[in-house]
């Protein structure tokens, strides 16, 4: 009886963990729809969605470990991998967006990067006037 109660409570807890992660992912996707420019959307995607996935994978790891007697190294590896690559992907994408001239939201306050942006990768001898687009 007692052990059964503990088992049920643990399952419920893991379910709530997974549902929380799913809701955070959904919030990230909602931000992707709602926010006004690429950079802000990238904030939503890299942060909320990553945290959501981490919670879901942690819930799965706990479930397999406690109930199926299978401590999965693959899930740990997946958690570490997502955790490491999400910021890198956000950074690469933001840099590509800024270099191809995606403009900021009109309510943005300042842009320190604008003056130093260069026309191409090869022309790196200081700023050469204004960037010539592509």
């Amino acid at each position: 009886m007692n052990a059964e109660t503990i088992t049920a409570a643990g399952e419920l807890l893991i379910g709530v963990l997974v549902l929380t992660g799913a809701s955070l992912s959904a919030l990230g996707a909602f931000g992707l729809v709602r926010l006004p420019d690429v950079y802000l959307r990238s904030h939503a995607a890299t942060k909320s969605a990553t945290l959501g996935v981490l919670l879901v994978l942690a819930g799965a790891f706990l479930y397999f470990w406690l109930y199926l007697e299978h401590a999965s190294a693959k899930l740990i590896l997946g958690i570490v991998f997502v955790f490491m690559t999400a910021p890198v992907a956000g950074h690469l994408n933001g840099r590509a967006a800024h270099r191809t001239g995606v403009s900021l939201w009109e309510k943005s306050v300042r842009d320190d990067l604008k003056q130093t942006v260069k026309p191409g990768r090869e022309g790196m001898n200081g700023p050469q006037g204004e960037s010539s687009g592509d």
Partner: peptide, 20 residues
């Protein structure tokens, strides 16, 4: 950061001042 950004997203009026 996950929680902060999520709260920022579900706020009905978006009052952020982004910049670089």
């Amino acid at each position: 950061s996950g929680i902060t950004v999520a709260l920022q997203i579900i706020r009905p009026r978006l009052n952020v001042r982004p910049g670089i």
